[in-house]
């Protein structure tokens, strides 16, 4: 890619332009920065670092947030099955 690079975001490969910061990427993905945690190559970033941290080829980024929990998915499947059986 000309002027581009490939990074991994939440386990998926993603092509993006060079010079992108973590903050840029979050905006591009339409993710509000409050209540998310970002881990860059296993290092947890402080919120104020989002705009300062540039991304480079091969970086692995994890973006996490809160979900209903903590139910292992098999319970959700069990409930569906129970409902079905009723």
């Amino acid at each position: 890619m000309v002027n581009g690079m490939q990074i991994q975001v939440n386990g998926e490969c993603r092509d993006c332009r060079s010079g992108l910061t973590v903050g840029d990427l979050l905006r591009e993905l339409d993710i509000r920065t409050e209540r998310v945690a970002v881990e860059l190559n296993l290092e947890i970033l402080d919120r104020k670092e989002f705009e300062l941290r540039g991304l480079k080829e091969g970086d692995r980024l994890e973006i996490l947030s809160f979900i209903g929990g903590g139910a292992p998915t098999r319970f959700v499947r069990e409930r569906k099955r129970l409902k079905h059986a009723r």
């Binding site: 975001v9 939440n10 386990g11 998926e12 993905l29 339409d30 993710i31 509000r32 209540r35 998310v36 945690a37 994890e62 973006i63 996490l64 947030s65 809160f66 979900i67 209903g68 929990g69 903590g70 139910a71």
Partner: peptide, 19 residues
């Protein structure tokens, strides 16, 4: 209330946030 920490769904941003 307890919550879990999981990957944000980046492919489907229409998914709402629990909070």
């Amino acid at each position: 209330v307890t919550v879990a920490v999981r990957r944000v769904n980046i492919t489907d941003r229409s998914k709402e946030n629990l909070l």
